[in-house]
């Protein structure tokens, strides 16, 4: 409880001043004066003519796509050509084509789903310039998109300029935070070197090669940008990525602080901090419910150990790193999947069935703080649907922030919401009934189904964590999840930007006694109910075939695997 309170409560407190700073950085009150003005001129000069004009939602969305297509190509080239490029002391060769596509899509979309082991496949140049660079700019894309959305909802038809916003987010928010956290990590014992792998002789006289590299720098933005891609294959279970209890605490806080601060930044830009407080509260309730469920379910022993002559009252310790404490595994599993981070400090495949359901719920809802910037954008989609339902229930035209929410906005919101469920459920169904998925499983039955369901959930939520136990570095998996990651990244940004552009042009309506308040407990309960009902209606059938069926089989037979 103390650990959960320290990490969740402490980070929630720190997110308040960070949100205030992010508002200053992304949406300065006087963008042409003082320090903000000098920075704006600097960022404008860096890009040139493209950054001088304020952009309508369509121009903003197109700029975002052009920029992300460009970083996709650059990242792709680094991985395809790494054998010819410098900073390759261990002589890494080019990756297979579909794996390059998957990895470039993964890091461009802020997912960091990894079908490779970094220390085996990537040169230092690929890690730093192909991947770590994308961890900054893909996260900055999410923050920029949220700032643009908020400006539109505040009534500004020009949403800002994407090229200026993405620089503000990268250089003023993510870079300073990453420098701070990287320093803490280096002090905490993470390697930070450009020397190649260490070659040592063990006490038994065996030659051993120990991979290392610029890990502290890589890890800081991995966590802060809700990226999640590890320097090493085992991610944050690796002693060089996460050596101690304290690096685990810092990592956990780094995972959720920027998504939390994004809610406050949103509230400040739209000028409705009480509304942001209600949204923050709804997210916190859902987050704590998942943490409570995961820690509770994981306190039961794993069925794999049933009948063995070992202590059965210490909970499920399979796949855990005990140097962090027993609750740290399920806590991290929830934090990393609630925020679209995707890093892991325990083996998710080894979680008890119902514990494994909690991370999946996090990825299905994808808005309980969510990814940097995009978590709040996803919550905005739920808000549009909630105010629409509330309006229908009382027979009034739905309004949000004093502007009417009409059929077009609701259709776009529903489309964005359906896209997420479509990618997960259709992808899972296709791979569950074909050798593309079935032949790559490590487990049969409901647990095998969960592995496929988790992989598509992770791809569509731009999370990047893996249930593992899945042989996912195949051409079908690489192509399917790569395509899903790109589509599921940008569709839920484009459509809300279109809604914001549409609402910005509407006349503000007068506040009357019949106006739906969005700053009170009633709205919070309505929003919470909307999220739960929509989430359950969409994903409960799939959950029953996977983790719930596995749990019931355990109860009935003792083992479902």
């Amino acid at each position: 409880m103390l650990l959960i309170g320290l990490i969740v409560g402490g980070t929630a407190l720190l997110s308040w001043p960070l949100g205030r700073y992010m508002k200053w950085a992304l949406d300065p009150q006087a963008p042409d004066a003082g320090a903000a003005g000098r920075l704006t001129r600097l960022f404008t000069a860096a890009v040139g003519a493209a950054s001088r004009q304020p952009q309508h939602w369509k121009q903003y969305a197109v700029s975002m796509l052009v920029f992300n297509a460009a970083i996709f190509v650059v990242s792709f080239a680094f991985m395809a050509l790494q054998q010819y490029l410098p900073l390759n002391p261990d002589g890494k060769t080019a990756l297979e084509g579909s794996l390059i596509f998957n990895t470039a899509a993964s890091f461009t979309s802020n997912t960091n789903l990894q079908h490779y082991s970094g220390e085996v496949a990537m040169s230092y140049l690929s890690q730093l310039c192909g991947l770590m660079w994308l961890q900054f700019v893909s996260a900055a894309t999410g923050i920029a998109a949220l700032a643009a959305l908020a400006r539109g909802l505040a009534g500004k038809p020009a949403l800002g300029n994407f090229y200026v916003d993405v620089q503000r987010a990268a250089f003023l928010v993510l870079l300073p935070l990453a420098l701070l956290v990287a320093t803490l990590f280096a002090v905490g014992g993470l390697p930070m070197t450009l020397q190649g792998a260490a070659k040592v002789t063990t006490l038994e006289g065996i030659e051993q090669v120990i991979a290392r590299g610029p890990v502290a720098a890589f890890l800081a933005i991995k966590q802060l940008g809700t990226n999640g891609g590890g320097f090493f294959g085992p991610n944050s279970t690796h002693p060089f990525e996460n050596p101690t209890f304290w690096t685990n605490v810092i990592s956990s806080m780094a995972i959720i602080i920027v998504p939390m601060a994004c809610v406050w930044m949103y509230g400040r830009i739209i000028g409705r901090m009480r509304h942001a407080g209600v949204v923050f509260g709804v997210m916190m309730v859902l987050l704590l419910a998942k943490i409570g469920g995961a820690v509770s379910f994981e306190s039961e022993p794993t069925q794999a150990f049933a009948g063995l002559a070992i202590e059965q009252d210490v909970g499920n310790l399979e796949g855990k790193e005990l140097r962090f404490g027993t609750a740290a595994g399920p806590l991290w599993a929830v934090l990393t999947t609630s925020t679209s981070n995707g890093s892991v400090n325990a083996m998710h495949d080894s979680l008890n069935p119902l514990t494994g359901l909690m991370p999946m719920i996090g990825m299905w809802l994808n808005a309980t703080y969510g990814g940097v910037g995009v978590g709040m954008i996803n919550m905005f989609i739920y808000i549009v649907i909630a105010v629409f339902l509330a309006g229908m229930m009382v027979g009034r035209t739905p309004e949000y922030l004093n502007r009417r929410v009409e059929a077009r906005e609701v259709k776009l919101a529903v489309l964005a919401l359906l896209a997420h469920g479509f990618f997960i459920l259709v992808g899972t169904a296709v791979f569950a009934v074909t050798p593309w998925g079935a032949a790559t499983l490590n487990n049969t039955g409901p647990h095998g189904f969960s592995e496929i369901l988790y992989e598509f959930s992770s791809a569509s939520a731009n999370n990047g964590s893996g249930f593992e136990g899945l042989g996912d570095n195949t051409v079908p998996w690489n192509l399917a999840t790569g395509t899903v990651m790109l589509l599921a990244r940008f569709i839920p940004i484009i459509l809300p930007l279109a809604i914001a552009g549409s609402m910005a042009r509407k006349r503000a309506t007068a506040v009357t006694a019949g106006t739906l308040g969005v700053e009170n407990l009633t709205f919070g309960v309505m929003l919470l109910g909307t999220i739960l009902f929509l989430g359950a209606l969409t994903f409960f059938p799939a959950a029953t075939l996977g983790p719930i069926a596995e749990h019931l089989l355990y109860m009935a037979e003792g083992s479902g695997r």
Partner: peptide
């Protein structure tokens, strides 16, 4: 250079651009 996979990625971005264009055409200009 596995060019086909690079082109696939760019085709997905083109598809997303198409989505922007289609949604923009549904704007009523109210």
């Amino acid at each position: 250079m596995p060019l086909a996979y690079l082109l696939l990625g760019l085709a997905i971005f083109a598809l997303l651009y198409g989505l922007v264009a289609v949604v923009a055409r549904t704007e009523t200009g109210e």
